[in-house]
Structures are given as structure tokens and as C-alpha cells.
Design a protein around this nucleic acid. Structure first.
Lengths: 221, 221, 221, 221
DNA sequence: GATGAATGAGGGTTCATTCAT
DNA sequence: TATGAATGAACCCTCATTCAT
């Protein structure tokens, strides 16, 4: 899954004689991105200090501001990147494959994302909790995609491939359950008496359980 | 559902000769609590300024500090109150009543809380997202209660009243789905093309849908 | 030694039918005075909070301000009282008695004051350290008295009762050494491996040693 | 006498390619130190406002905090520096030189310090008056040194080079008298009708008088 | 007299951002 | 590019004092 960062736009379509700058520039931006994700995830937008991000990225505060426009812009960029990833993760494959295949893959991808990018998942949820003040301007296409997905589900229902119900709520519930394993990874581990980052076996187990639960809940046949 | 604030204990059953203080004191504390909930919900702990809380409560900053010890203490108190409420909301009735009754009531209570206290729900989730640094010291009893609940569910499974599965995950999923309608109320309304605060009819509809989904997911008979 | 407090002016010349107020009023003022002395001694004028004084006096802050005009006024009053005491303590008896008797008594009184009122001694020294901004307007008479004392010493020197030297410096040194046992009581005890408040025997020992040292230093015969 | 500040260690023996930072940094720190000494001396720790220090140093409050960690840390540093100086000033030279030489030099050094650094002397005394809450953790070595000094004096007494008496008290009295000329410089000038900062001649006179007084008091032969 | 409440000024400190070098 | 330094606004909180009851 392609992680896009603020530097992506500068990277594409450069001739073989790259200006030399771009290389390191992009690299540093990547480091900053990762640092920012960690700080934003645990401190929130307001609680994140540029000092903390700079420290974690191994830069000085002044240096950091050479690479970014502002803390808000950095935050916005990160959210945008996540939003881009959702398109892939939460996207629907060919409707004709049926819900068991399409939704199964979706759930698997979403769980994988929860396991591999819990911090980014949490930043996204935190933004939603606040009412998405930063992200709202970018949500229109998400709505369109979601409406399309709901339409697909409605078709499946009409075809008797799933229980009749509210398609949008089905999507909500898939989201809610899969997201839980990212947002509440700490608590989940605590309540399950497992390590924070489960091994491959445990992850498979969870994917299987979650899929079974959601399939039954939605009456996927 | 009893909302407990720092002053509740002083409010009950006082004769006409109230100590004189607690009347207004309690009232102001309530206003502060509500103001703080709104600000914490949308700005987070770090992003919430005492100025904003004071403004929303109609007080001066100095006045605010006459009533509270510190921003952190106020935040902690709010979290504690929520935790107290969870005990009632997420508590299990008599096991003998069976999962359909017990879990059904639980889901209904939880959804009602999501509808009536979305801000408090979100503050709680936001705290969890951060890894619960403030709340962790208070979570031990929560774990015990949850373990007990899981044991009850296991019994029901053994008795064939529910599908065999991981009881703890069942609890997770109930939490995830019901909490979604508080945490993501804004997005849910946006995607469903409804008003932010649905009417009674819509709420009933959601409770019914959610209950059906979760019952099927868990195979409740 | 008469301890004068802020209430003194209100006490004098009241008929037998005392207004009834005065009694308690004076008593409370005494309590406040003692509390203030303790707080001023350990925190200084700026560091002393009216809250701390009120607490130590068993009053509310509002109540305290009913009895005093301001923190500064309270502080000034305390300094004035100490200044008044110095007149007695550092006053010279009949010159004709000679330095051994007069200075010996003075040293004894001064050491007793250091032992019994270390806090007030320290408040005074702290005020001097700052350049006596509050006390300066009240120091004129002190200077006159000190000049007189120096003149007496000069006479004794002229009569061969003491070594010839600078009389003012003799007074300085008496002050410096005796005051040390109040101002540095904590350190003195620490370095001498004794308790903070020595017993009567130790006090006598110190008076004796100090007197011997000062007499030899000044060549008192 | 080496005044050590937080930056001294970085100042020595740097080639022409000075790190670029430390030059100005050290200079500003020196200015801050001096400003802080003046404010602390006249207002005390609590009474000193960072605003006042910043003003006196010609900086903004924010700028000041770029150079210091906190008001308390600045105060502590100043005290530590003084303590370091005391080691030199109040240190004993070779015992074999005898009390007349060793104590004479000590008194001379101590008086010089009183004349040249009266403000720092006063800050130290003010700290002692409060019971040395900040300095206490650093006083252990002072006690050891003082005990050693007392032992040396005891030896001298045993050898008949001084009057038999309590060695620790001799040290106390030397301290008390020499310190007086720093702590009470304002009052001393006032009572002696001299300028606050005496000329070299007057200083020599005072050193001579003080030495004579203390030698006679301790019976130094 | 006493109490709870209010107030206005200021306390120390942090921080995102900019600037000069 | 990178660094030390600066800046201005804000931040949380405290406090002496006053007021209404």
C-alpha cells in the first residue's frame, strides 16, 4: 500500500540527473512524517510540540520548519495520506465476486492496516472524534465512495446474498469493529492478557473471528 | 443514569438550612463540568484552554480556578465520572435471564448513552486512543468486571444460548459498534444524510438494527 | 520586654466598660502576629502568602483582612515592634557602671533575645539585607541612640577601661556576633552537632564564650 | 577569585574557531547572572520576578527563558557559585604557617569578598536565614571542611598559639564579623557616615580593625 | 464579625514560528 | 541548509484584596 508523503509530489518525473537535493530532502521528509505520526498519535494535534517532533526526527526545531510549512500543515498532510490509504483499504473489488469474497478481502485488508498502522489509524479516529475540523473539506469523495459501496451492498441484498438490512449500517459496523483493533490495541491487549503487538498467529485468529462475526451479523451467505 | 460530579455527594438530602455554600457551589460546578466536557471533547486535554472553558461557563479564568484545582484535575474528574457511568451502562444483569435479555438491555443502555452523552463518550475514547495515561491507574476494576462478564458469556455459550466463540471478542465488538454511534455521530449523520441528533424514531431504529446485527454476529438464540 | 502589636493603640485608655470587642480583637491580633512572624521568617515578605498566615492563625483569608490593613502593613508593624525591642535590648545602662557591667548585660540580653526570638531576629536581618526599604524611615532614632552608645564607649576608652579603637566598630562586632546565634541558629546547630534549640546549660555556655570573646576583642578591662 | 558560572567550563582555551555559540551565549549568561544577583539580593527568591531580571539584563522574558531553565535553577546556580567561592575564601592555608598568617589571610580574603561581592554575600545569608532550603543538599562538604578547619584551630590551641576556647565558635565569630560588612553594608555606611562603597583606604582600615579585634578575641599570638 | 465569591493584575513558563548568519 | 537567537502571544495558575450577604 502506497504511503504518500508530503514529498511525493517532488519526487515524480525527475530526470536521471536528479538535482541531488531531492533525494535527501525526500528522505528527511519521510523521517519527519514518521516522527510526527508518533507524536500526533500519543499527544494529539494541540499536545504535539514541534520540539518533540524535531527531537524524534533528529532535527532542530528551526530545521524542522525548513521542511514543513507549519504544524497544522504537517498534520493535514498526514491525515490526507491516511485518507488516500483508506481508498485502497476500504475499496470494493468487483461486485460480481460477491460479498463473501469482496467483504472478506476488505475486512482482511482493514485488519492488516490496523495491525500495521495503528498510530495512523488512531490519528484518524481522533480527528473524527473532534468532528473532523481539519478533514471535513476532504471528505466529499469519501462520501461518494461510501454511497457507491452501500449501493453495491444493497444489490447483494436484493440478490439474496446477504440479509436484508441497512447497507450503510453494515459498513459502519465493519468499520467500527475492524478499527477497534487499532484504536484500542492497548486496551485489547490488556483485557486479553496478550502482548501489545500480537504475533502472526494471533493476528490470523483475530481476522478469522472478526470476519466470522461480521459475516454472521450481516448475514453474508 | 446518575451523572456523578465532584459535588454530587454534597447535594443529596440536605434540609432547608443548606450549608449555604453548596447550593451555588454545586450549581457552578455543574456548569463548569458541562463547559469542560464540550471543550475537552473538541480540543482534547492539551488543546483545551482554561480560558475557553471559563468563557463557555461564563466565568473569568480566576473564578474558574476558584472552583477547580487544575485543568488536569478537572479532566480526571470527568473521566472518573464517565468510568462510573460505564459500570451501570455496561454492567451485566442477572445471568439467569439469558443473553437475549441481558445483552439486549446492555446494548440498549449503551446506545442510549451514546445518544445522550456523545461528548463524554468521545472524551473517553480519545483518552483510550492515547493509551489512557490518565485513566490507567483507575482501570483495574474495569478489567475485573470485564473478566466476569466474559465468564458469564462463556457460560451462556456452554449452555448453547450463544454461538461458541471468544467471549472477550464478543464484548469488544459490542463496545465497538455501540460506541461508534457516539464517537462518529458527526460522520454517521453525514453519511446517512440525517440530522446530527436523530429523533426518537431514528434512535429506536438504530438500536433495533444494532441489536439485530450484534445478536446475529454473536449467534444469540 | 514589651511586645507591642498593631492593637496596642486601640487598647490604651479604655474605661472599665471595655467595649467587649477590644478583648477578643486584641487576642486575635496577637495570634495573627505570631503566625505572620513565622511565615515572614521562613518565606520573606514577598514569599509570604496571606493564605499561609491566615491558615497558621486559624482564620480565613477574608477574616484576616478584617484585622489587618495589608500584608505590607502587617510586616511593617512587626518590624516596628522589633525595633522597639532593640531599644531595650541594645540599650545602654548607666555609663558609670563601666563596660564590663554595661556591655556584659547588653550581650546577655542580646543573646537571650537571639535564643527566644530567633524568628523576629531573622526578619529584621532579612530586612537589613535588602537595604531596609521598609524600615529606613524609622531608623533615624536608632542612629541617634547608636551614636550615643558610641560616645559612651569612646569615654570608656579615654578612661582606659577598654582598648583604644573605633567605638562604632565595637558595636558592629557585638551586634554581628550575638545576632549570628539567631540568624544562623540552624547552621550553628548543624555544625555544632546540637539540637536546634539548645538547653539552658548550652545557652549559658554560649553567652559565656561570646562574652569572653567580645571582651577580649574589645580589650574590656 | 574565580567566579564560576554555568558556562565557564565552555569558555576556557577555545581556538579561533569557537563553536560560534558559546561566545555570545556565555556573555549573555554573565549579564543574566549579574542582573539576577541584583534582583535576588534586594527582593529575595520569591520576590524576584523574572520580568525584573529580564528587564535588568535587557532581555525579554521569553528571551531570558532561552538561557535559563527556571528562576529556581538560576537561583540555585548563583548559590552554588557562591558556595564554590567560599571554598577558596574561607579555606585554610598550610596549618604550619600558624594562625596569625593563616587566619589573617583568611580574614583579609573574606573582607575583600564582602567588599567586592556584597550582593552575593547577602543572597547567601538570606538563604541561611530561611534555613537554607535550597542549599541544604549541597552543604555536606561545607561541614566537612569546617570540621577540618576546627581541628586545625584546636591544634593551634594545643600548641599555645591561640587562647584555649571552642574552635567552632572562633570560626563562627570570624564569619559573623566579616560577613557583617557585606550584609549590613548599607547600615554600616549610614552609621559611620561614609559612602556605601568605601575607598581603598577605608577598606584597609576596616580590615585592619577587624583583624585586630578577631585576633584579640581569639587570643592569637 | 464571618463567609463564600469575585476580581484584576501579575506570576513563571512554553511554544510555533521567524530571522540573521 | 543549518544554527543560535529572538519574538509575541498564549498558557495555567496564584494572589492580595474587596464585596455582598
Amino acid at each position: 500500500m502506497a504511503r504518500t508523503t508530503a514529498v511525493d509530489t517532488a519526487e515524480d518525473a525527475e530526470g536521471p540527473a536528479t538535482r541531488g537535493r531531492s533525494r535527501k530532502y525526500a528522505q528527511v521528509l519521510g523521517v519527519i512524517n514518521q516522527a510526527a505520526i508518533e507524536v500526533f498519535a500519543s499527544e494529539g494535534l494541540a499536545g504535539a510540540s514541534t520540539q518533540a517532533i524535531a527531537d524524534k526526527a533528529g532535527l532542530s526545531k528551526a530545521q524542522l520548519h525548513y521542511y514543513i510549512d507549519s504544524k497544522e500543515a504537517l498534520y493535514r498532510q498526514i491525515l490526507q495520506d491516511i485518507l488516500t490509504d483508506w481508498i485502497v483499504v476500504f475499496g470494493f473489488d468487483d461486485e460480481a465476486l460477491g460479498p463473501r469474497k469482496v467483504l472478506g478481502d476488505l475486512i482482511r485488508r482493514k485488519m492488516a492496516f490496523s495491525f500495521e498502522h495503528p498510530l495512523r489509524s488512531r490519528i484518524f479516529t481522533a480527528e473524527m472524534l473532534r468532528g473532523a475540523p481539519v478533514l471535513n473539506p476532504l471528505m466529499d469523495t469519501s462520501k461518494q465512495r461510501t454511497d457507491q459501496a452501500a449501493a453495491v451492498i444493497r444489490n447483494w441484498m436484493d440478490q439474496g446474498l446477504m440479509d436484508e438490512s441497512d447497507p450503510m449500517l453494515v459498513l459502519f459496523h465493519i468499520w467500527a469493529v475492524t478499527q477497534f483493533y487499532a484504536d484500542h490495541a492497548t486496551q485489547a491487549a490488556y483485557f486479553r492478557n496478550t502482548a501489545q503487538h500480537g504475533d502472526a498467529q494471533d493476528r490470523d485468529y483475530l481476522v478469522e473471528q472478526v470476519t466470522a462475526f461480521l459475516f454472521k451479523g450481516a448475514g453474508v451467505r
